[in-house]
Design a protein around this nucleic acid. Structure first.
Length: 255
DNA sequence: ATGGCAAGTTTAACTTGA
């Protein structure tokens, strides 16, 4: 079984790339972030034709998430229960016996800003909700665009970007508190070359110079860790014409 | 120290992203 996450930065623009990627990477579950479209504009027929069920939770202009799956999603939840949020950032469902949470974590913009405070509140709520979900669903994956680096190994220029957004101690502490629930960073369970990233700035020839960050993560529970055989970032779509700034991350698990 | 690219909306200059 394979599960993947990809921030597509506008599904309107990226739909042909998503379909092409699925054709060559027929994963069982794909979580999408940054749809940037309203629910009525979601291209459900295209995914149906490709053999996928879909759950979607869109919004005008910003945010928006979806879960594509070869088998139907059950027990679906939109956004974090009990956390009043006007932004569409979370879809949760049980798929093939795995509790799947796909999430677009807030960007935070700048430490000290209102958006950073929102990011911290959102992370607090996410942690407490995931704590509860884990108790009911031992087989759990939390994947998406976290907008947080674990440590300097996830940063192309740790000195220049020290304590800037995605790299602050506060954000990293939040990420570690998710790990503290009993989750594991699937990427770090395996060997990867240094400076393996999942996002590159559109500017400054970021991708060509590998000036990137690893901010798209797949966190897995103990029970899923025992089944996991691989976790890879697929850089290929970043080489497409008109690419998303993020690359997909793919988790492979056995029976 | 800043902007540099991309996408969407307000369609021309802005906001946001990361």
């Amino acid at each position: 079984m394979q599960l993947a996450t990809w921030n597509v930065n506008s599904l309107n623009v990226r739909l042909p790339q998503v379909l092409a990627w699925l054709a060559t990477n027929p994963v069982d579950v794909l979580a999408l972030q940054e749809l940037k479209l309203t629910d009525d504009k979601f291209p459900v027929q295209a995914f149906t034709d490709a053999g996928y069920h879909a759950q979607w939770f869109g919004q005008k202009t910003y945010n928006g998430v979806a879960l594509l799956s070869k088998t139907p999603a059950e027990n679906v939840i939109r956004n974090i229960p009990g956390f009043d949020d006007e932004q569409s950032r979370v879809l949760c469902a049980t798929i093939d016996g795995v509790r799947v949470i796909g999430a677009y974590f807030p960007n935070g913009q700048e430490p000290g800003s209102d958006k950073f405070a929102y990011k911290m509140r959102w992370l607090d709520a996410m942690r407490e909700w995931v704590r509860a979900e884990l108790q009911q669903h031992p087989q759990l994956v939390l994947m998406g665009d976290y907008n947080i680096t674990f440590d300097d190994a996830d940063v192309w220029d740790p000195v220049g970007l020290r304590e800037t957004i995605h790299c602050t101690t506060e954000e990293r502490n939040q990420l570690q508190s998710l790990i503290g629930l009993g989750l594991h960073d699937a990427h770090r369970l395996f060997e990867h070359p240094p400076k393996t990233f999942s996002w590159w700035d559109y500017r400054m020839l970021g991708f060509q110079k590998n000036r990137g960050l690893r901010i798209d993560h797949i966190l897995i529970s103990d029970a899923l860790k025992a089944r996991t055989t691989a976790c890879e970032i697929d850089r290929a779509p970043r080489k497409n014409p008109q690419p998303s700034d993020h690359a997909p991350v793919v988790l492979t698990i056995g029976a």
